[in-house]
């Protein structure tokens, strides 16, 4: 913004040129001067543009069409969005569930990742590697969900039902994954259990990347305990990593549907009790073949994530003060 105004004022000192032309040529000059930068950016930039930017733009375009993947897309304007907010009752349930769900699992999983990474940071590399693996296990082992389906199995052989019946707390087995009251809490527990993923590893690497001399001089300067060290030395150095983790938590908690789908066995839950925006999207995209509508859901979800990312950024700016 500031550079724009600076460039815009130059024509007054160079009256010979038209303002637009002068600005353009100075931009071109700068680009040519920094050509090496663009060379470094090019390999990633080109692939990113072709395989990420273009598909995203195409999806945004499709959100204004009716597209069933068999016939060519037909332009319908904002109809999908009108339908989404005014006619689709299930979508509103999904929005409510997603917000509830994201506001619980997002912050909790984020804290869990950081605290565990911080605790194991003191250990020797080999010990730390093994412990990190144990925490990361739900993300790396292919069959992670089987354990949970065993625990929450709806018959008397399910581990939880068996335990509760043995203890005499219940007399009839409970259909954990079909009963609307239980699905959401169960999903939250499972997601938290799976949450030690990418951000966890990034926090480990980030903590190890801190300069050890910072803490030695901190100890001399009167840092008394680990909490002071955390707040005054570690966290301010970790702002970038914390933002990274925050984005992972936001995208993870807003798009968590695969967990629900795998746990329940299909994208739809009883009475839509654990229905999230992402499942709504999967329902329309892969079951009903209404891709235009699915794209409009993705766009709305995208804006929701951007807004929460901005909020988190504001919060993180206060760290260490």
């Amino acid at each position: 913004m500031r550079s724009d105004t600076a460039v815009a004022t130059t024509p007054t000192t160079q009256p010979a040129r038209s303002p637009v032309r002068g600005r353009l040529s100075s931009v071109l000059k700068q680009i040519w001067r920094d050509r090496e930068c663009y060379l470094f950016l090019a390999p990633f930039g080109i692939i990113f543009t072709v395989f990420t930017v273009v598909p995203v733009l195409m999806s945004i375009f499709l959100s204004f069409t009716y597209f069933n993947m068999l016939q060519p897309a037909r332009w319908v304007g904002i109809h999908n969005y009108v339908r989404l907010f005014l006619e689709d009752d299930v979508f509103l349930i999904a929005v409510r569930n997603t917000l509830l769900y994201a506001s619980i699992t997002g912050p909790l999983s984020y804290l869990l990742c950081f605290i565990l990474a911080w605790f194991i940071n003191d250990l020797k590399p080999k010990v730390r590697a093994v412990l990190a693996l144990l925490f990361y296990a739900p993300s790396i082992s292919g069959n992670a969900f089987m354990v949970w389906t065993l625990i929450f199995s709806g018959d008397t052989y399910g581990l939880l039902n068996g335990l509760l019946i043995d203890l005499g707390i219940i007399h009839q087995p409970i259909q954990w994954l079909l009963e609307p009251t239980y699905i959401m809490p169960i999903v939250i527990v499972v997601v938290l259990w799976m949450s030690l993923g990418t951000s966890f590893l990034v926090f480990i690497a980030g903590l190890q990347g801190l300069d050890p001399r910072l803490f030695e001089s901190g100890a001399i300067d009167g840092i008394k305990n680990r909490w002071q060290e955390l707040w005054y030395l570690t966290l301010p150095q970790m702002k970038g990593h914390l933002m990274f983790g925050a984005i992972m938590s936001i995208t993870g908690s807003f798009t968590a549907a695969s967990q629900i789908t795998q746990l329940v066995g299909e994208p739809l839950t009883t009475d839509y009790s654990a229905h999230t925006i992402m499942q709504h999207l999967q329902d329309y995209g892969t079951v009903r073949f209404d891709m235009g509508y699915a794209c409009s859901i993705a766009v709305v979800l995208f804006f929701a994530m951007v807004v929460s990312q901005r909020l988190v950024q504001k919060l993180l700016d206060r760290v260490g003060r």
């Binding site: 931009v27 700068q30 680009i31 920094d34 930068c37 663009y38 950016l41 930039g45 990113f48 990420t52 930017v53 273009v54 598909p55 995203v56 195409m58 999806s59 499709l62 993947m69 984005i247 936001i250 995208t251 798009t255 992402m278 999207l281 999967q282 995209g285 892969t286 891709m291 699915a294 794209c295 993705a298 979800l301 995208f302 994530m305 951007v306 990312q309």
Partner: peptide, 25 residues
């Protein structure tokens, strides 16, 4: 350099777009 912030902004934003719908494009 010119475009660096724009590029970085696009990278961060792209992380938040559901990959389910970009599969077909």
């Amino acid at each position: 350099f010119i475009g660096a912030n724009l590029f970085m902004g696009m990278v961060v934003l792209s992380l938040m777009f559901a990959s389910e719908v970009t599969a077909i494009p």
